[in-house]
Nucleic acid binder design. Structure first.
Lengths: 225, 225
DNA sequence: CAAGGTGTTAAGCCTTTGTTCATATTGACC
DNA sequence: GGTCAATATGAACAAAGGCTTAACACCTTG
């Protein structure tokens, strides 16, 4: 899960980043609205946490701009207690929830979880395609009935692919979803993971659940019927 | 046993928290209805104690909202003597019992025990999976008929895992259920408990009732039929 | 006070996993 | 067909994470 954090206060930002990272989120944090918008346009996030009082471009405008880009990930806004009217404006602009400063880090985490779960919407515990089924709460794959264990990273890759069935996902997009910063460019970790996944998904190499589109990325195939 | 306490009066709240904690409950306490609802949604409790006169969202609405979320844990309401009509409304809204203020702490504890016993009584006296059966009221485990003693913490761990069968439960989630605050990060208590549990559950190490999903947590395996 | 049990810590060992590397294979373009 | 870049593959390695055991402090209980 990759988060965008836009917060101008250095100390608070650092605390949040740490807390979120401890919870296994991958966090990109920036200090002002302009940078926030740039990041939001350039990368794809699972959720954003945005302080409403920001330099360069205020939080409300940032949210509007993000929504104008047709980005739909949930947005959690941080607002000071005294100007709570902002909160309404923020929700109007397209935010999904708010937390009033000062807050407990725990509250942020809980709200975030709620949003992400809600965003998953259909709250599907499992992603099913033909004889492949990925149980997202058991973190387990089942191939025509037989359960198969996945490592943490194998799971992340497969989940991401299965969440975008039939779409070509570039290696960069995948890598960015797995790691914090842009990872060492000349590494073939991803290829190795895909290789191991293919073996587990389809030991016989008959059905080719994951195609490689040369130069573009990988694609999880929706099985016929 | 984890309780949710929603009470706006600081002194009373503190007294209740202390008394309950002395009785080995784990207590989350909040000051208003909105926070209460949030907690109830976000975490899973064994029971709740709710004052009817609350800021932000009154107790009646809170109870309705909790029940609307399909939460079934018992709810004990606290009500002032003069407006006893609230009590009826509260019970109608879905509360299970009431105590009139002012009260003796002892009374709260007694009512709570009764509620919990009743809830355990017909809700789920035992968690059964294959040849494993955990008697939640006797706090006793039986492995293919033979009863096995569990220590307090062993029981807590196993109960939590068995309440979420087939799901991967992170160590953090488990630890938070065992202890109040987030516990010392670099301690391996949990591993030790799991180790001891595994021995008791399955001395032969054949059936692997508890899987470890590396980097993610533990999973109680649902035995195949 | 002795004895036994329980929760906790510490330490070393062992396994899994992520990562790298070297080398093979593939596909696209000339 | 030849050439080059992109991807696959298999093996090897180091570190993280988990396991296991033992010891210890603290309670209870008799």
């Amino acid at each position: 899960m990759r988060l965008l954090l836009v917060e101008d206060e250095d100390l608070l930002r650092a605390q949040l980043v740490k807390a979120l990272e401890d919870n296994d989120y991958i966090v990109d944090s920036v200090q002002d609205g302009e940078l926030g918008l740039f990041q939001a346009k350039e990368f794809s996030y699972d959720a954003a946490i945005i302080d409403l009082g920001l330099p360069k471009m205020n939080g409300i405008d940032l949210i509007k701009a993000i929504r104008a880009e047709a980005k739909v990930f949930p947005i959690l806004i941080l607002t000071a207690r005294d100007n709570w009217t902002d909160k309404v404006e923020g929700l109007d602009a397209g935010a999904d929830d708010y937390v009033v400063k000062p807050f407990q880090i725990e509250e942020i985490k809980a709200r975030l979880n709620a949003l992400l779960r809600r965003a998953a919407g259909f709250a599907k515990p499992s992603l099913d395609f033909g004889h492949l089924s990925l149980d997202t709460s058991a973190k387990q794959l089942s191939v025509s009935g037989n359960s198969v264990e996945l490592t943490a990273y194998e799971y992340k890759v497969l989940e991401y692919l299965m969440l975008h069935p039939g779409q070509v996902i570039s290696k960069m997009e995948l890598t960015e979803h797995l790691y914090e910063q842009d990872y060492d460019r000349d590494s073939n970790v991803l290829e190795v993971f895909v290789r191991r996944l293919r073996q587990k998904l389809d030991p016989e190499e008959m059905l080719k659940p994951i195609d490689t589109v040369r130069g573009q990325g990988y694609r999880f195939n929706v099985p016929p019927n």
